[in-house]
Amino acid sequence: ADDEVAKLLVDAYRKNDEDKLEEVKKRYNISDEQVKRLIRKVL
């Protein structure tokens, strides 16, 4: 599931889509710190 979330985050990140990032964060209840970590893992 982590990889799936990471893909969604990276996708939103690449598109610079703040709304999507927020949506994913809320849906999976993850912190900014986790977001950064997941994005770093993929990029």
Rank of each mutant, 00 (worst) to 15 (best):
D2S: 11
D19S: 13
V35D: 00
E23V: 05
V35T: 06
E33A: 10
K7E: 08
L9R: 00
D2M: 14
K7G: 06
K41E: 09
I39F: 04
N29R: 07
Y13C: 09
K26C: 06
Q34P: 02
E4C: 14
E18Q: 15
E4I: 12
D2Y: 14
Y28W: 07
K15N: 14
D11K: 04
I39M: 07
R40K: 10
N29K: 09
L9G: 01
D11C: 14
E33H: 05
L43V: 06
Q34G: 05
L8Y: 04
A6E: 09
K7F: 11
D32P: 05
R37M: 12
K7H: 10
K26F: 06
A12W: 04
K41D: 08
D19Q: 14
R14V: 12
K15G: 08
V35F: 14
V10F: 14
L43A: 05
V24H: 03
D2F: 14
E22L: 11
E4K: 09
K15W: 08
E23N: 05
V24Y: 14
S31F: 02
D19M: 12
L43C: 12
K36S: 09
A6Y: 14
L9H: 00
I39G: 01
V5Y: 05
K36V: 11
V24R: 01
K7S: 08
K26M: 09
V24I: 15
K26I: 08
N29T: 03
Y13D: 01
I30A: 01
R40I: 11
E22P: 00
V24D: 01
V5M: 08
R37T: 10
D11N: 06
K36G: 08
E4A: 11
A12P: 01
I39D: 00
D32M: 05
R37A: 14
V10K: 04
V5C: 11
K7W: 14
K20V: 09
L21N: 00
K25R: 10
A6S: 09
V5A: 06
R40L: 12
D11Y: 04
I30M: 13
I39N: 01
K26W: 05
E4M: 13
D32W: 15
K20W: 08
I30R: 01
L43T: 05
K25H: 01
D11F: 03
D19E: 14
D17G: 03
L8N: 02
R40S: 12
N29Q: 08
L21M: 11
Y13M: 08
D3G: 09
K15Y: 07
L8S: 04
E18T: 15
V42H: 12
V10C: 12
D11E: 12
R27W: 06
D17C: 03
E23K: 07
S31D: 09
D17W: 06
V24Q: 01
E4N: 10
Y28T: 00
R40C: 15
D3C: 15
Q34F: 12
D11I: 05
L38I: 14
A6L: 14
E22N: 13
K25Y: 02
K15A: 15
Q34I: 09
A6T: 12
K36I: 13
A6K: 07
I30V: 06
L21Q: 02
E22G: 05
E33C: 09
E22C: 10
L9Q: 00
R37F: 09
E33T: 06
I30K: 02
L43I: 08
R40W: 14
L9F: 04
I30Y: 05
A12T: 02
L8V: 06
A12S: 03
V42T: 09
L21P: 00
D32R: 03
Q34K: 06
E33R: 06
V35E: 03
V10Q: 06
I39S: 01
